[in-house]
């Protein structure tokens, strides 16, 4: 690995790509400390502990819980979801796609795309019942439906993409009691990459905040 001017090892392409590939296929990438995980009995304790840990100057925090615990986002500094903006843009793409479909297939009478007859993609304007070839009124239902369809796909695919899922492996899965994070326990995670992170000190802080259990978790 080449060193850059600061004397730190600069990451190679492999360093950047491989961990992502490993995590996607559920293979651990390297043996190193990931962070500390502390376990709480209920939501309010988690929120209180999260707020105290953030007050103590930690920034790389996460929480695992069996259901959304409100107040945790502000307590540990999780930013607002940007999903809404993505969805509304894609929804309008759906409206436009529906307009284009109906207008091109039923009202476009300009020069045809060369070779369109081979795949059945030529437009075919046809007057039926004396109605106009295209009008927004009859276009409305399909424009509406396709906007909804596009928005639904955008919100589901967008949500998983923003969450970095599917991801079959994650270091927090190495925590001994992780199976209870989807059952009845509330975990606070402090990552080792946090500048304030010192293994023993951080564990001590978490225990003092009322964690029923706290341990260091390796990235293996």
């Amino acid at each position: 690995m080449a060193n850059n001017h600061a004397g730190l090892p600069s990451p190679t392409l492999g360093d950047l790509v491989l961990p992502k590939l490993y995590s996607l296929f559920g293979i651990a990438n390297k043996d190193s400390l990931y962070g500390a995980v502390a376990e709480f009995e209920d939501g309010p304790q988690l929120v209180a502990a999260g707020a105290k840990v953030k007050e103590a100057g930690y920034t790389k925090l996460d929480a695992l819980s069996p259901f959304p615990v409100h107040g945790i986002d502000d307590a540990i500094g999780v930013p607002r979801s940007i999903l809404g903006f993505i969805v509304i843009c894609i929804a309008f793409c759906g409206t436009f796609a529906a307009f284009l479909l109906m207008w091109y297939t039923g009202a476009y009478s300009g020069p045809q795309i060369p070779g369109c007859e081979l795949v059945g993609l030529c437009s075919y304007p046809l007057v039926i019942g004396g109605k106009p070839l295209f009008h927004w009124v009859f276009g409305l239902p399909i424009m509406f439906e396709l906007s909804i369809l596009f928005a639904a796909f955008a919100s589901v695919i967008g949500m998983f993409a923003l969450n970095g899922l599917p991801r079959m492996h994650h270091p927090t899965f190495n925590y001994s009691g992780i199976h209870r994070a989807t059952d009845d326990r509330f975990m606070l995670v402090v990552e080792a990459s946090d500048p304030k992170f010192k293994a023993e000190e951080t564990l001590e802080l978490l225990r003092s905040l009322g964690a029923v259990h706290a341990e260091l978790v390796e990235d293996k």
Partner: peptide, 26 residues
């Protein structure tokens, strides 16, 4: 595999709730 490796992170829940609200809204 079916749960796509869901782990209930606060960051997940934030996007999840937004997605759920949007799906309910549409």
């Amino acid at each position: 595999i079916a749960s796509l490796g869901w782990r209930g992170s606060a960051r997940h829940w934030r996007n999840y709730e937004m997605a759920y609200l949007i799906l309910a809204g549409i």
